[in-house]
Amino acid sequence: MQKKTLKALALCLIIVATNASAISELKFNGVHYLGFTSSKEDGGDRESNFETRRNYFQVKAYFNKKDYMRLTLDSFQETKGSNKDKGSWLTRVKYAYLYLDEVLPYTGVEMGQVHRPWIDYEEHHGWWFRSISKVFVESGYGAHLINSADLGVNFKTKLAHFSSEIGVYNGEGYHAIENGEGLSTEARLTYHVYDSSKGRKPSNDYINFSYFGIKSLEDNKRGNNDFTLNGLHAVYNTKQFLIAGQYIKADNGNNDVYEGDGYSLNFEYRPMDKFWFIGRYDDWDQAVASNGGGDRKHYLLGAVYNLYKQVRFIANVRQTDYDESDSLNAGIKDETQFMLTAEVHW
């Protein structure tokens, strides 16, 4: 982090601490993805790097037991462009929202820079390993269509056998320029067939079926107002294993950029509490090359060691294959990666 960022963060903490009497409780936590990756493209040289992929710092200020303000900061290294910050570690706001519970029956609302409906749900029900790969709809090796947060409002409903998130957003995502030309509606609807949990834990038994979708309301970065995304997802989890699968299709009217369809499957096998095996397969058919190439397949296999509840280690290999017969993949090489990761929560 830069000195200005650290000073700003320290000032925010001082202000919060000074006004702590105005709130009932403060909660702090952090998440870190630390790792080593060795990558090689076909015919190319091997590249190996130690990494700190993500460092999240979060504070929640509770006004009562259910209503709160959340701020989540995300550090990252600037690697693009030629500006003066290239190579520096910067900090951006991931989430900054007010949550009010029961604004409607069984429904709360996030206002500000909020969750988009789908990605956070999948990361806490179907794919628990954000530290080594983003979910299918976000990953550059998969569909590469949206990210996890945006400015807007998100209504979150939860019943015994049904939950949903429905919102209106700027549509550009939290690290794109918000130009007021991308409003979209986004939704997730989930039927909880069976759920033994009162929280999101791999050890709980549950079966869920979900629909998720996006519809642009105005012209946006995708070039028109006809962008739609529709997806179906199912997951079955027990203490011993998890299996999940999904299908998504993206259409963009007369503009082929951001169009495509594909599916993803993943599993976990947990022979012991501390030792797991994981795997995933992504298959995406891309309309044009402007969104990361043409048709591609992504394979991932790994092993997980849970040292503590807060610390896990992951070793995995991943392979991305690009269809050589697809002219959209001209110049893009197949890639193999070996990864070692320490995932830390506190």
Rank of each mutant, 00 (worst) to 15 (best):
G126M: 03
G126W: 01
W127R: 08
S131T: 09
I132N: 06
S133M: 08
K134T: 04
F136A: 01
F136R: 01
E138R: 00
S139R: 13
G140E: 14
G140V: 11
G140T: 09
Y141K: 14
A143V: 14
L145W: 13
I146T: 14
I146G: 08
N147I: 15
S148H: 02
L151Q: 09
L151A: 12
L151K: 10
L151P: 07
N154L: 07
F155M: 09
T157I: 05
K158M: 04
L159M: 13
F162K: 02
S163E: 11
S164Q: 07
E165D: 06
I166Y: 06
G167M: 02
G167F: 03
G167H: 02
V168M: 12
V168K: 00
V168P: 02
Y169V: 06
N170V: 15
E172V: 10
E172P: 00
Y174P: 07
A176K: 14
A176S: 15
A176I: 11
E178V: 06
G180N: 13
G180M: 10
G180S: 08
G180Q: 11
G182C: 11
G182E: 06
G182I: 11
S184L: 13
S184T: 04
T185M: 12
E186M: 08
A187P: 00
A187C: 04
A187S: 14
R188M: 08
L189S: 03
L189I: 11
T190L: 01
T190M: 01
Y191G: 00
H192P: 00
V193Y: 15
V193I: 06
V193Q: 13
V193W: 14
Y194W: 12
D195I: 10
D195Q: 05
S196V: 13
